[in-house]
Design a protein around this nucleic acid. Structure first.
Lengths: 337, 337
DNA sequence: CTGAAAGCGCTTACAG
DNA sequence: CTGAAAGCGCTTACAG
């Protein structure tokens, strides 16, 4: 191993050309004589030369990488299939654009400053943020940075300043409630998501409005954190508070699964005694017992669109107007209603 | 928002000082008069100035970030608690050094080139790699790059060229077998890990040698992929092939859990009919039924040490000699033997 | 304590 | 097609 990494200047000297020509030969974007081309490539090989990315980025203003920011506890990141699926899709989508995915885990807490410093440093060309919370104020921070970004899920604060893709959570929740009503259910509870996440809030509102429109009670709500355990707990507290629940809309399949576990433990049958509708359809809904009727979260479409918007924003140099796209989740009927 | 990010030069002009002084005021590492200090800080605020990290990195040769490379399918990354735990620990450890963690998921396959390009670009100060496989040849690649790095788990190829932390997998496996022997077991099978991972290989060898030393058969082996499903399958094939197994050493708790599911499905009792010892002790072993006797994988120590070695390597500019530290896993007795 | 200058390692008009 | 030069946005000896 050499003492130091070799530089373009050394390559040029060895190849007997100027740095400009060496650069052109290496990047292959402009014409170079065959002779120069091979001389440079030989020199590169001989020296084991590898371009310094930060130097190149300084002039091209591109790094070739994109951050995915997950301002979420790693406990949830590693237990909710949403993340695995999303990352898988983002990664595939980015690959088509020859962009490197850089994952930034931002556990809520003291990390914020370091994360922003990194982002400000322009080590990435843009960012996709998912699973954000009200208090992280990431939309505001990122728009201050003028770093191209797109949110998956409309941010709670500052949504007018950034691009995002979203699904119509409220409409989907209303749909879920309608399914329950159609099945003759009248005491319909909800296991809501976190209060500081837009998706949690919107699904709750959808549930509330649809019930209100039907002239029914809207007081049967318990909150979960989108996890299985949280769903079980919420279900238990619901059951402890009122005996006659006959329908549940859970704001995530994981929570629905937890709820079903709690119901089973109490000898309450699904769907005979209580019908339940979940949300997400990312794998777990097919394997609950009985299989779960749920709303399909269109994360495939959201991710594809998010990457597309991000690429556009990067091409515009972060100066373009915010864009947004909203998908509508479809109902997947299985056996829990 | 401005058209462009402001530069140090603009800050300096507005503050009425030189770029050098502005730089010093901002970085706070050298003396600056109180007057200049406030003038610069005011200018920074007024312009919303934020230093360009790539420019700074070009001269300081530091980015303030460290990569964690996971050359593993995201399916496994998101299902094995090993990763959540490890990342959590790395992240905490890095935070103490004010380093940003940058996670690079390198699904085996075509990503390799892009990953190496990113790493060569010096967008990070160093790298920690975990869950590597024989064919990724990452140790060789990284040592070619002369990028400071440390492996968690001894790499299969090129281990003499890089730093790593490891645990003594073979000794631990022997220990597991001894526990089984002490319980009077004589037909001891193993559910081995992937053949292309050092940990899988070493645990298998430990099992084999300890059995051979006891003069017992070493032909009862089935391979899994460290997952629960893989463990169940391997156990099934073992059971189908031979009826009289009375002990199993599984190379991971997840696989042990799968095996126990398979055993239960066949009405085989643990530990009455067959004793089983797992490996990892990262949470699942406590919750199997019965709780699993297992080897404690010292990932806390490994991570702490890995970060320490990496910081040292970075300080040495990647020119230091490779270092290695090996821990010994301890047995945790529960109820499966 | 401060500033002018050099330099980090590249790319890219510009002129030939 | 090629090279000399300027420049990307910083930091850091060096001299004062």
């Amino acid at each position: 191993m050499n003492e130091h990494a070799s530089t373009l200047g050394e390559v040029a000297r060895l190849a007997g050309v100027s740095k400009a020509t060496a650069s052109r030969a290496i990047n292959g974007r402009s014409k170079v004589s065959a002779k120069a081309q091979t001389a440079v490539l030989d020199a590169v090989r001989q020296l084991g030369y590898t371009p310094n990315g930060t130097a190149r980025s300084l002039v091209t203003r591109r790094t070739g990488s994109v951050a995915v920011i997950l301002p979420e506890s790693d406990e949830r990141i590693f237990s909710d299939p949403f993340f695995a699926r999303m990352l898988h899709l983002v990664s595939r989508s980015l690959r088509e654009h020859d962009l490197q995915l850089v994952l930034l885990l931002a556990e809520p807490g003291d990390e914020e400053e370091r994360l922003l410093k990194y982002l400000r440093g322009r080590y990435v060309d843009g960012a996709i943020v998912a699973s954000h919370h009200r208090d992280d104020r990431l939309a505001e921070h990122l728009s201050d940075l003028a770093l191209p970004c797109v949110f998956i899920g409309r941010p709670w604060l500052g949504s007018e300043r950034v691009s995002y893709v979203d699904s119509d959570n409220a409409a989907a929740a209303r749909h879920a409630v309608r399914v329950l009503l159609d099945a003759g259910r009248r005491r319909i509870a909800t296991i809501a998501g976190p209060r500081d996440m837009r998706a949690g809030h919107d699904r709750l509102e959808g549930w509330r409005h649809e019930l209100a429109d039907a002239g029914l009670d809207t007081d049967l709500v318990a909150y979960g954190d989108f996890t299985e355990a949280g769903g079980a707990e919420a279900c238990a507290s619901l059951l402890d508070a009122t005996g006659d629940i006959d329908g549940i809309f859970a704001a995530s399949d994981l929570m629905a699964q937890g709820a079903m576990r709690e119901l089973a433990a109490r000898g309450i049958r699904v769907p005979d005694d209580v019908s339940i509708v979940g949300y997400d359809d990312l794998g777990v809904a097919e394997h609950t017992r009985p299989p779960l009727t749920t709303l399909h979260n269109p994360i495939g479409s959201m991710v594809t669109e998010a990457v597309r918007l991000l690429i556009e924003a990067i091409a515009e140099g972060g100066r373009g107007a915010p864009r947004r796209v909203v998908f509508v989740p479809e109902l997947v009927r299985r056996a829990s209603v």
